[in-house]
Simulated scan of single mutants.
Amino acid sequence: MFHFSNIVRTKGDPKIVESGPSLKRPEDQLARALGWFSIGLGVVEFFAPRRVTETLGMEGHETLVRAFGVREILSGIMSLSVDKNAGLWARVGGDGLDAAALLSGLTSDNPRKGNIALALLMVGGIAMLDYRAAQDTKPRRPPRDARRKLYPNRSGFPKGIESARSKARQIPSHAAAGQS
C-alpha cells in the first residue's frame, strides 16, 4: 500500500505500512477549523477592507476593519497552536467586538441594514461555535481531592528486576554474543 508520508522519509527511516484513525478529538478538529476560518476572514479584512465596508454600508471604517483583520489572523494562529484554548477565547472576545461594531452600523440611514443583520446572525452562530470550542478545549485539571499517584518502587519490569536478571542469566553466552 502506498502512503504519501513515505515519500519524505530518508533511506534508513521505517516505512509506514498502515495508518490508523486520527488521534485528534472532535473538539480539536473544531478548533482547527475555526482557526483556519479566522485566518481566512482576517486576510479578507486586512487586504480588502473597503470591500467589507461597502458591503455593510459602513464606508470610512476601513482602518477598524483592517485592525479586526489583524486580530482575526492572530487569534486564528493561536487557535492552531498548542495553546489553542487561548486563541479560542480570543475569538470569543473578538466576536463581541465584531457584534458591537456591526450594531453601530445598524442605523436607519444605512441602505445595507439587511447585510448587517445577516452579518450579525453569522457572528452569533460563529460565537456559539467559538464558545463551545473554548469550553471543550480548556485544560483539564484533576479534582482538588484527587490523590497524586507516585511510583517510587516501580522498575518498569512487569515481574520485577530480579525476574528480568534471572531470565538474562538463562541466555547462553554464545547467543548473547551473536554467535550460532
Rank of each mutant, 00 (worst) to 15 (best):
M1G: 07
S5A: 13
N6S: 02
I7F: 12
I7W: 11
R9I: 01
T10E: 11
T10F: 10
T10Y: 11
K11G: 01
K11P: 01
K11I: 09
G12I: 07
K15Y: 06
V17I: 13
E18P: 01
S19H: 08
K24V: 13
P26G: 06
E27R: 05
Q29R: 14
Q29L: 15
L30D: 07
A31K: 02
R32T: 12
G35V: 09
G35S: 09
W36Y: 10
F37Q: 13
G40R: 01
G42L: 05
V43W: 04
V44R: 01
E45S: 08
E45L: 12
F47A: 13
P49G: 13
P49S: 12
R50C: 02
T53G: 02
E54R: 08
E54D: 14
L56Y: 00
G57E: 13
G57N: 07
M58R: 00
E59N: 11
E59W: 00
G60K: 03
R66L: 13
R66H: 06
F68S: 03
G69A: 08
R71V: 15
L74I: 14
I77D: 03
D83C: 04
K84V: 06
N85L: 02
N85I: 01
N85F: 07
A86S: 15
G87C: 06
L88D: 04
L88P: 03
R91G: 14
V92A: 09
G93F: 13
D95A: 15
D98H: 15
A99P: 04
A99R: 08
L102V: 00
S104R: 11
G105A: 05
T107I: 04
S108C: 02
N110H: 15
P111L: 04
P111K: 08
R112Y: 03
K113V: 10
I116G: 01
I116Q: 04
A117T: 05
A117H: 04
A119D: 03
G124C: 11
I126M: 14
L129W: 05
L129C: 11
L129D: 13
Y131A: 06
A133G: 09
D136T: 00
P139Q: 02
P139G: 02
R141G: 01
R141S: 09
P142A: 03
P142F: 06
P143A: 15
D145G: 02
Y151A: 10
R154Y: 07
G156F: 04
P158Q: 01
K159Y: 13
G160L: 05
E162V: 15
E162A: 15
A164D: 11
A164T: 08
S166Q: 11
R169F: 01
P172N: 08
S173K: 09
H174I: 05
H174Y: 15
A175E: 12
G178Q: 14
